[in-house]
């Protein structure tokens, strides 16, 4: 396999989970709910997913793919459930949305670390702070993967990449082509008008936040099954924040956000490839890890003042102020 293919393959498997998480963030923020909780939501989703895989995997043969798909399902459910906390804090308790997001992140880290240890000790009888998952089995799409260069996009795929691609398209369709999507986008720009049209703003916001929880949870389990090959507190390395940066770049729109995620993904995989090609010691790969973060800052310097946030972003909707 040549260098370019490796960069494409590794770049895509990082960019796609990031992208699906960013789409969740777009849903939440377009509906008017600031969502810094993505980091915690993806971690919590990864936790519930990994736990499900463990429990189900105990009764099956070692190489079965069934636990993997259950893990994804439970990650989606877990992320959705945990995101309700954010939705309730923001919509019912009228908490500051930024603070709520940070609180959710801190709580998710604390709870998953505590639960992982407690469950390992009391149920599985092992003193461990992680659930080992391994890496998902990869596959090639026949024929098209043989195309030179571009074929790399269809080579060595994780199954979740296909799932993400389908979900991303569905999410795009829902947001831009359906009445629900229109209401959601309007709820973030002018909630009073949406309310006047007889649509329940709070309900839309609850659904939007749950959507972000579900998609973040999925992203979390994808990272757990690819980059980290386990669930542990290592899952909290800031990918959630990276997804937020990506959606801000993308101006809260889905297609440009995909571009931002691809930039992050390829910057990261290209950096690793360069370190490897030059034969540098492994400590140099830490410098590569910096690339997406620095790139974000640099790009934001050029793009941030052009991007238009949803107008009612971060304000709890108060009917009495209409």
């Amino acid at each position: 396999m040549n260098n370019l293919s490796t960069v494409i393959i590794n770049g895509m498997s990082f960019a796609l989970p990031l992208f699906i998480m960013a789409i969740g963030g777009i849903y939440s923020e377009r509906s008017g709910v600031t969502n810094l909780a993505l980091e915690g939501l993806q971690g919590f989703g990864a936790f519930t997913g990994a736990l499900a895989a463990y429990v189900i995997g105990m009764h099956l043969e070692a190489d079965s793919m069934v636990p993997t798909y259950f893990a994804m399902l439970f990650a989606i459910l877990g992320g959705m459930l945990f995101s309700l906390l954010h939705a309730v804090l923001c919509n019912y308790f009228k908490a500051d949305m930024v603070i709520s997001g940070v609180v959710i992140n801190i709580l998710a880290m604390a709870m998953t670390a505590f639960l992982t240890k407690t469950i390992n000790k009391n149920i599985f009888g092992a003193a461990s702070d992680k659930f080992v998952l391994g890496v998902m089995r990869r596959f090639d799409i026949p024929l098209i993967s043989r195309i030179p260069v571009l074929g790399a996009f269809f080579t060595n795929l994780y199954p979740f990449e296909i799932i993400i691609a389908i979900l991303a398209f569905a999410a795009w369709y829902l947001l831009y082509k359906t009445p629900f999507g229109l209401h959601l986008r309007a709820a973030g720009d002018n909630p009073a008008a949406v309310d006047a049209a007889g649509i329940n703003v709070i309900r839309i916001r609850y659904l939007a936040v749950m959507m972000s929880g579900a998609l973040s949870g999925l992203a979390g389990i994808c990272f757990a099954y690819s980059i980290s090959a386990k669930f542990s507190s290592d899952i909290y390395v800031g990918y959630g924040y990276l997804a937020i940066a990506a959606l801000i770049f993308g101006g809260w729109k889905i297609i440009p956000t995909l571009g931002a995620c691809l930039i992050f993904g390829f910057a990261r995989s290209a950096g690793y490839q360069i370190v490897q090609q030059l034969g540098l010691p492994s400590s140099y790969s830490d410098l590569v890890m910096v690339l997406p973060y620095v790139l974000t800052l640099v790009l934001l310097v050029f793009l941030a003042h052009n991007s238009q946030a949803p107008r009612a972003l971060g304000e709890a909707y108060d009917k009495s102020k209409r």
Partner: peptide, 12 residues
């Protein structure tokens, strides 16, 4: 966003 980016940059 910038704080988080600088956090990770500094850390690495």
């Amino acid at each position: 966003v910038s704080s988080i980016m600088l956090n990770y940059t500094a850390s690495y």
